[in-house]
Amino acid sequence: MSTATKTGVRHQYALVVDTNKCIGCEACSVACRVENEVPAGHWRSRIVPPTSSGGSKVPMKWSCMHCADAPCVQVCPTKATYRRSDGIVVIDAARCVGCKYCIVACPYGARYFDEKAGLPDKCDLCVDRLDAGLAPACVQTCVGRALALADLADPSDEAAARIRSGEAKPLHPELGTKPSVYYVVGK
């Protein structure tokens, strides 16, 4: 499900996280925080650290999954939260009434409430940067080169190939939300 932009180039964005290369350094967390002027106390993206006692054995970058069947989109009474045709789930600040339904509905805990703005917020895949031809802040700064923006509409995109081949898999697919963030796990 991709779309044509003004120039006719189609995009279907996804994020690939190669956990084999992620060292859990949180450079991505801080880059995101600064780039997106996220208020103190909140993060659009964090690293869930590995532990020996249950949980993940590798660090997991955790941010909005840009679900194709997104509960946050479904519950939004004003359609402020919607999915762009290129796959990015965004919030239209002008329509949002701050009801927080989306925060409760998101099974990935990806959203926070920006008290100052009176609005929910979350990863928007750095749409401004994408629209300006730049990689998302987290991808750009990634120390392990573990992150890649994939364009599933591009048959020659290497990151997209890792999704198509099944090498990169979504997290908790059983939730049925069809996430657009894919993880490569296991060497």
């Binding site: 932009t5 995009h11 290129d86 629209d131 300006a132 031809g133 730049l134 990689a135 750009q140």
Partner: peptide
């Protein structure tokens, strides 16, 4: 000079 996208979307 950040890493360019392979296929940058056209700027509006």
């Amino acid at each position: 000079g950040v890493r360019e996208l392979a296929h940058p979307p056209a700027a509006s």
